[in-house]
Each structure stands twice: as C-alpha cells, then as structure tokens.
Design a protein around this nucleic acid. Sequence first.
RNA 1: CGGGGCGUAGUAUAUCGGUAGUACACCUGCUUUGGGAGCAGGAAGGCCCGGUCCGAUUCCGGGCGCCCCGACCA
Length: 415
Amino acid sequence: MRHTELFTKTRRDAPSDEVAKNAQLLIRAGYIHKEMAGVYDLLPLGLRTFNKVVGIIREEMNNIGGTELHLSALQSPENWRKTDRWDDEKVDNWFKTSLRQGGELGLGFTHEETLTALMREHISSWRDLPTYPYQFQTKFRNEARAKSGLMRTREFVMKDLYSFSRSTQEHDVFYAACGDAYERIFQRVGLGVLTYKTFASGGSFSKYSHEFQALSAAGEDTVYVSKEKKIAINKEVLNDEVLADLGVTRDELTEEPAIEVGNIFSLGTRFSETLGLTYKNEDGESVPVVMGSYGIGPARVMATVAEVFADEKGLVWPVAIAPFRAHIVEIPGSEDVKKEAEELYSSLMEAGIDVLYDNRDARAGEKFADSDLLGIPVRIVVSEKTLAAGKFECVERATGHTTQKSVSGLIQTLS
RNA sequence: CGGGGCGUAGUAUAUCGGUAGUACACCUGCUUUGGGAGCAGGAAGGCCCGGUCCGAUUCCGGGCGCCCCGACCA
C-alpha cells in the first residue's frame, strides 16, 4: 500500500483522554479511533494487525478440529430465561433493547445459550459428537467502567469456541488440546515467554479453569507465578489446597500484574441440561452433552502486544502480526530516487511481500519519526545516499540493526 | 455504582468577569531537504441548559461527556 492511499494521520501528541499506553500509541499511530468510552474503531492499520491475529487464531482453531460459524448479536430472552441469565439482578452487564412492536432483545455478551439451543437441531446421536464450533463475533458488555484503552471495552470481537463432547473424558482431551493451541497462538503473536497458563476459578463443574495471563505492568489481574516451573495461579484462587495440588510452595511464587489474553473453561452439563441438549448414546440412553467454552479477544491481544513491546519511539510489532512486513521510506530527492523507490515497491509487491511505501513528499525527520511510531518490523530507506551506494538501507525496528541490501537480498530476507 | 479530577480550533495546551493566546496539523507563496524545517500570509475554538451580572468561556446550579481510584468483571 502507498502511504498516500492511507488516509490516517499520525499525531505527535498523545490524546488527553487516554492514559493507557496501548490506547495512546495505537491512537497516535492511527491504528484505532476512540468512538466513546470503551468503544473503538479499527482503522486500516489496526484492522490489518487485528486480522493477522484473527488469522493465527483461526488456523490454530481449525487445526484442533474447530468449525467456524457466525452467530447473531441480537438475542431473544427465551433461552437466557431458561438458564437464569436474563434478569438484570443476575447479569448486570446486558445491553438490552426492544422491538418496535414490543418484546425485549439483548445484545449478546456471550453465546452459550444461543449455540447450545441451536445445536439441538444438529446433535441427536453419539455419532454427531464431538464437535467444536467457533466464531469471531462482536460481544456487548455494559461494563460499569470501561478502562485501560482496548483492555476493557464495551464492544469487542471475541473468538469463542464451544466444545460439545460425549463425556468428561472426551471433553478433557479437547480441553487440553485447546490449551496447547492457545500456547501456540500466544507464542505466534509474540507473547509466548510472557504468557502463563494460569489456574483460575472453575465454577461448579470443574475444580479449575485456565486463564492465559500475559505478565505486564498494565495488567488488571494479579497472578502468582513460578517462572522456573512455568506455573501461575490467579490471586482469586490462591490457597493452600491449590498450592498442594500444583506442588508448589508460596515462597516459590512471585506476585505479578497480568493481562488475561485468553481463557478456557469447562462447563460440564450446565447449559446442555438446562436447554435440553442431549444425545442418544450407544445404548439408546438420552445423555446431556458435556460442554466447554474457550475465548480470546483479538483486540486485547493486539493491545497487549502494543503495550509490552513499544519503546519510547512508538509501536514495535512482531513480524507475525505487523500490519506490513516492511516499510519503504523514500527520502525525497531527485526523480531517480522516486523511480528507484517505485521500482522497489513493485518488486516487493510482486514477490508477495506486504509493504507500506511512504511516498509522501515530506521531510526525512517526519518520515523516520512516523516510521518508528508505526512499528513495522523492517524499514527500507531509499534516498540519494542509498542510490549512490547501489544498495538499500535496511533497518530492523526492534533492534535498530542496519544492513545494506540489494533488491534480491531484500526479497530473500522478507519472504 | 461510591469517591476524585477534567471539559477552550483537527490535536495538545494557556489566559481571563469586558478583544480568547501559543504550538503542531491544515491552506497560499518563497526558501529548505537523512531525525518531527524557516519566513510571510490565511482559515479554524469556549460541551449543553438555566441562574447571577451592564456583560459569563470564566462565578453558581443542573445535565451530558471523558479520565483516574475503588466496587464490579460468564
């Protein structure tokens, strides 16, 4: 993409109504726009990174047998009344509205009810199980207090997968596989070393659930971590019994703030029993389906990566989720420089490399500052200097490491 | 939802009971061109409603919005 096609502008100043680093940087760099408290738009650059995160999650979900679908955001109260989650006394973060001709509606904050009810049409035999539908879909949560930029918003896309299994044993196998897939996802987006599969409150059907907590000063959660043993426990469930279960002592753990970037949860038969999702087993008996739910918020993942990797100059993206692989920065000079930059841009595009080409007629200082702020992994400078040298200047955003490369050298490095 | 703070051009800010100033961004021209250029000219602003006052952006009341702390966060 040519920079002149990108309508967003960078800002020198951080917005006065944001304190969170993720929001300040993403807004300054033109990745997102704040619509209101807890509600953000994804601008072209932000959408690119968001989609890369989504792509990684999708691949990993498909790899463990997930099947993508898309459920509605508008929810009829019917199923929620059955599970006793419609009443405002029970669930206080509903956005509710009504139909013109009367009748209540809710904007879904999760999808257990809808999907469980819908699966009654498709699951009737043991032969239909297990199955793992998932979606990337907008959730609405009427949070009492939105905060920390993209970390806690009122409208956000969630990848939510729901597992439908024949037995707890079968469920446990998938639960573990999904946990492993989550580890790969966070590894791939660059949060691997920071992210801990964390023991958390399990609810009525299992002793624990697991949260994936990325250690960060910006985190809202508190976890107790053993970095040696790669064990983490949410503060909410820290007690002697948990310590004994996990074979750690309190002394081995340090208290750390962390961001919950994902969670996996065993639901047992709570929803299937309440909503009547059963199957006939091999003996012809009607048995409730065993369920689990598994969530990741791609925008929160994006914000977490922004938060933990940014430096004083701006964003720093891992290659896997950067909006572009490389940033051609043309330092305006003679027509030859322009021609050279255009040719390089064409060559890289033809080689299938995602590249942003800063073809603006602006000064070097401004272009370098913008390039740093955007955080694209590699900057390729085209100028009178590089033209004279016969090679392009190639700078890694994360390290500042600079090399001189030919077109073929660049294509090789960036492919 | 409790407590605190804030609301002035596109952005970030200043001042003031009487003409609202600055920087960046924007428009025009000239110069400049490897780390957010210079000069000249230009366009652009007081969240809403009410009160006090000769006069309110300023003071008072209410509303709305935003931020922070706490509570809350299947």
